[in-house]
Amino acid sequence: MTKLLLTLHVLAAILAVGPVAVAASMFGPAARRAAESPDDVRARSTVGLLHRICRVYAGVGIAVPVLGLATAGVMGVMGDAWVIASLVLTMLAAAALIVFVLPGQERLVEGGGGGGEGVAAATGRLAMTTGIFNVLWVAVTVLMIVRPGSTTGA
């Protein structure tokens, strides 16, 4: 059961978090291109598509911590520091996505930002929060691999 849960957890992380990380990173430059060419339907649709990918896969991403908790429970490592740290970092990443990244994208999709300089500032803030989201997931990934203090034989 442990191997199955761990496999599902890793697959969920790759298939759910990966697309969000990539699409969110691509969003800012795409939004700037769309703002520079307001008549470019393709540029606007790209921005909408990237935001939709982030929204949908963020929902699917709920499976990652759920499967992670199930795996940790079966492995008997729920109280280990690396699991607790991973959970905290996962919650921070989710908060960054829900509170900053997705609403920032939504404002730009809806045409907010107040022209060229406003879009540049908004995409700059969005790039920063997206970067924080991505760095948090890198830290979680490292903890999952290194498992400091683990007795499960990393």
Rank of each mutant, 00 (worst) to 15 (best):
G114W: 00
L126P: 08
L102Y: 03
G124N: 08
A95M: 04
N134S: 14
V142F: 09
M144F: 02
V101P: 09
A120P: 04
R44K: 13
A23N: 06
P38K: 10
G131S: 10
A21E: 07
W137R: 07
M144D: 11
S37N: 12
V88E: 11
L143A: 06
G115A: 07
S86T: 14
T123Q: 01
M75V: 06
V101K: 11
A31S: 10
G76W: 04
S86Q: 09
V109D: 03
V135D: 03
R55Y: 08
V64N: 02
V66F: 07
S45E: 15
A43P: 10
A121C: 03
N134D: 15
R33W: 00
V60C: 06
D40M: 06
R52H: 10
V88C: 06
G114H: 05
I53R: 01
P103A: 04
A120K: 14
A85G: 11
L92R: 03
H51S: 13
L67W: 01
A24S: 06
R55T: 14
A121T: 10
D39V: 12
D39N: 13
R44W: 02
G111M: 05
A21P: 02
S45F: 05
R125V: 00
G114L: 02
I84F: 02
R33D: 13
Q105T: 06
D39T: 15
G28P: 15
G61F: 02
M144H: 13
G131F: 00
G48H: 06
A58E: 02
T71W: 09
G112H: 11
G59Y: 15
A70C: 12
L50H: 02
A93I: 09
G61R: 09
E106A: 12
T71Y: 10
A70Y: 10
A127Y: 04
F100Q: 01
A70E: 11
T141P: 08
V20S: 00
P65A: 05
L89Q: 01
